[in-house]
């Protein structure tokens, strides 16, 4: 009986505490850098699309709201022909970002993306792709991958030997 009264009292005195609620539209919340909000596709330091359309984000997505199609450009880079996120399904879990091997897909601290029409929540590549590196600076996938692209031939990547001369028998 006493504990009931005590808990009622303890709850009651919360009446005089400072409120934790932020009056959102007037007061803006300060979001941490790794807050999982709006999803973007970033570019590498040279301005090329980071996304290589490996489909790992789509596979990691628990609500299956990412659809894309891979293509290859004339210079040998893979890129998504289309990249669609259905934000009316997205749960902002960040698994796509975790799965991304090229830091292309990133969740940024912006959540103001409500719409009155669900159809406007379907984001295509042009809505997702930004002109920047996002949170992870300096990474360029093709510099570390073995694949040759225009401007980076075989053996010109980081930590790579020049291509083997098949006709040589020297040790």
């Amino acid at each position: 009986m006493f504990s009931i009264l005590r808990s009622m009292f303890l709850v009651f005195i919360h009446l005089f505490r400072k409120k934790v609620t932020l009056q959102y539209p007037e007061e803006k919340p300060v979001l941490p850098a790794r807050w999982r909000g709006r999803i973007i596709l970033t570019r590498d330091p040279d301005g090329g699309e980071r996304c290589v359309a490996c489909y790992l984000c789509a596979a990691a997505c628990p609500v299956d709201c990412i659809a894309l199609q891979a293509a290859e450009s004339a210079d040998g880079r893979r890129y998504p022909e289309f990249f669609r996120i259905n934000f009316s399904r997205c749960i902002f879990c960040g698994y796509c970002e975790e799965a991304c091997p090229t830091y292309a897909i990133q969740l940024i601290p912006d959540f103001e993306m409500s719409e009155y029409d669900r159809r406007n929540l379907v984001y295509e590549k042009e809505h997702l792709l930004v002109d920047g590196e996002g949170k992870y600076k300096g990474f360029n996938f093709y510099k570390v991958a073995g694949l040759a692209i225009t401007g980076k031939g075989k053996g010109e990547g980081e930590n790579e030997e020049p291509p083997v001369d098949v006709k040589s028998l020297l040790p």
Partner: peptide, 13 residues
């Protein structure tokens, strides 16, 4: 299998 909720989202939500 991925993308079930996004494959046709551009046609019909």
């Amino acid at each position: 299998y991925s993308g079930r909720t996004a494959m046709k989202a551009h046609e019909d939500i």
